Amino acid sequence: MSEYNQTVAFIGLGNMGGPMAANLARAGVRVRGFDVSEQARHEAAAQGIEITDTVVEASEGAQVVITMLPNGALVKSVIDEILAAQPDPRLYIDSSTIAVSEARDIAHKLEEVGSRFIDAPVSGGVRGSVAGTLAFMVGGPAEAYQEATPLLEIMGSSLTHCGQAGNGQAVKACNNMILAVQQIVLAEALVLGERLGLDHQAFFDVVSHATGNSWSLSVNAPVPKVVPSSPANHDFRPGFSAALMLKDLKLAMTSASETQTDVTLGRMAAEIYEKYVADGHGDLDFSAIINEVRGD
């Protein structure tokens, strides 16, 4: 059991937030949670989380507020709601994936009322959330990062302090832009190999030990059998959905525009995923983009 003796309010108990909050509760942390979904509330309650009827009720008496929500507008709304009712200084940890500028605006607002804030987006997907092996990339003051570390260590296996507020979001946007491009070019290479008569296993055996290797191949191979745990063996159930990849790519494109950075390949990846999601495939794992390359 954890020796952590502060109360944590956890807002957002969905596919990612629910298991994260459950891991905290399992470690002995008192967690008060809220979600708009009745099913999410029910599942969280079964994991030892104290469920409340409102965001404000969840935050009452909590020294730490963690948010894991679909977008920056919701994060801002939740924090505004808490501040209006309970402006007392506390630590805020946002593990949602939002724009860098949104994270920095939230940090500034909370600093003005004496609270601490870190943006702590994650990598590792639902499996990492359940297993407590998420990778946290954190932006914010060193003191706030150190304060949050005992909680982050329960939910994840890799923590990196990336500098000022917003830098966690910045590195996630950069990382996922790389991942999207890699997944697309891997799909193109695999389809080219298929049409040249190359067996998937032979392709994997060579490339996974050569300069073309990547996480997209060695862990998330978009063809069945070569990596048994990859989504391709399970009808491309995510994992990390194509819709979420598109969201992250759009955030990267926003940052590229704001900084006047030329991201030619990132922009092309965003266009490819936008078409794939618009065609109705957003709920599949992002590695299913191979079907778009095949023309399926």
Score class of each variant (00 low, 15 high):
G156E: 04
M137P: 02
Q169P: 00
A173N: 05
N175Y: 10
G140P: 13
V223N: 09
V191Y: 09
Q164M: 10
Q164A: 12
A232I: 06
E194G: 09
L179N: 08
F204H: 14
H200W: 13
A173G: 01
S158D: 11
P224W: 06
S157V: 00
V219Q: 11
D199A: 13
R237E: 15
K225M: 09
P150N: 08
G139I: 00
D205Y: 12
P228F: 01
G239P: 04
L152K: 03
N176L: 05
H209P: 02
H161S: 02
G156I: 03
G193A: 15
D205W: 12
D205G: 13
K172W: 01
P224E: 01
L159M: 01
P141H: 14
P141S: 13
S157D: 12
D205E: 15
M155K: 03
S216H: 08
V206E: 06
S214Y: 04
E153M: 07
G212T: 04
M177R: 08
G139N: 04
Q201L: 00
G239E: 13
P150F: 06
A170I: 00
S241L: 05
L186A: 06
G139A: 00
I178W: 00
C174M: 10
A189Y: 02
A221C: 15
F240G: 10
V171Q: 10
A144G: 07
A144I: 07
A189G: 15
V206I: 14
A210H: 11
S216A: 15
W215I: 10
N167G: 03
Q183S: 11
S157L: 08
S158M: 11
L190H: 07
G193W: 10
Q169D: 01
S208P: 02
A142H: 13
A202P: 01
S208G: 07
A210W: 12
R195I: 12
S216K: 02
Q182T: 14
A242T: 09
A189D: 08
D199K: 10
Y145F: 06
V223L: 11
A144E: 04
S241H: 11
E153P: 03
F136V: 00
L192H: 09
R195W: 12
S229W: 02
Q201K: 14
P228K: 05
P224F: 02
S218N: 15
T149F: 03
L192E: 07
V191Q: 13
S157P: 05
G140Y: 04
G168R: 04
A210N: 05
V185I: 13
G212K: 05
F240D: 05
G197L: 11
P222S: 09
S216W: 03
D235Q: 15
L190C: 06
E194F: 12
S208M: 07
S208K: 12
A142E: 15
I184H: 06
L198H: 10
A142W: 08
V223T: 12
Q182K: 10
I178S: 01
H161E: 02
A202M: 14
D235K: 15
